[in-house]
Simulated scan of single mutants.
Amino acid sequence: MPHLPEHLLAGYRSFINGRYVAESGHYKSLAREGQAPETMIVACCDSRAAPEVIFNAGPGELFVLRNVANLVPPYAPDGEYHSTSAALEFAVQSLKVKNIVVMGHGRCGGIRSALDTTSAPLSPGDFIGKWMSLIAPAAEAVSASTMMTTTERQTALERISIRYSIANLRTFPCVSILEGKGRIALHGAWFDISTGELWVMNKETGDFEKPDIG
């Protein structure tokens, strides 16, 4: 008999007897008609920063891509395996999303590793180190600042990395062309786990500001 960890089974029982019952018609409609989310979110795989929870989204509302430190690599059609680029391609070309949100968060372990050049790789492959090298220039610049505390450097790089990812999004022709035509919009956001605050990047200045949510 197949088994899952009991806490997962308990969660599933709660879902199938509660939320699914209440939304079964919507689930069946999604199964029949397919998904049509208007927004893609590039988020970190950190278990504390789930976009569906933060934005109180229901099934079919968000197309979510999660990876270490919510990074988007530059466009590189080199024949290698590119899971982030593949998800982006599907969201833009097939689902035709209207918004792409890069959402970082406080206390990000990936960002912390990029700032800590003394830590040893977690494995011989050093997959995290290679991945985080995408923002190595920014990490080096932030690390060099002696006027900031460790926490300030961490927050600074978390937010700078969001700008990096948005810049890399624009290296994908399918994104830059549609953005130029006004058919897709790029956004940045940063979530503070400890306070629940969401900070949104101002498109003109690049500053992160708390939106007026009433």
Rank of each mutant, 00 (worst) to 15 (best):
N168G: 04
A57D: 03
S165A: 13
Y164W: 15
L169A: 12
A139T: 13
V68Q: 03
E52S: 15
G79H: 11
D46C: 03
E61W: 09
A10D: 07
V97Q: 03
F172G: 12
I16T: 13
L71H: 12
P37R: 06
S119K: 06
F191N: 06
S145V: 12
Y164A: 04
V92G: 02
I193T: 15
R183N: 09
P211A: 09
G11N: 05
D116S: 09
W199M: 13
N56H: 10
A156T: 15
Y27H: 12
A136P: 08
E23T: 14
A167G: 05
V175Y: 11
E209A: 10
N17F: 10
P5F: 11
S85I: 10
S24D: 03
K210C: 05
S47P: 02
L178M: 12
E197D: 15
F191M: 04
T117K: 02
R170F: 00
K181S: 05
N17P: 00
P37N: 10
M103D: 06
W199I: 08
P5Y: 08
S85P: 07
E158A: 07
F15G: 13
L71V: 08
L169K: 13
R32F: 06
L134K: 06
C44S: 01
A141T: 15
I177K: 11
D192V: 15
G214F: 13
N70D: 05
K181W: 02
G188R: 03
M147W: 08
I162P: 03
I135W: 02
P5S: 03
S85R: 13
N67E: 06
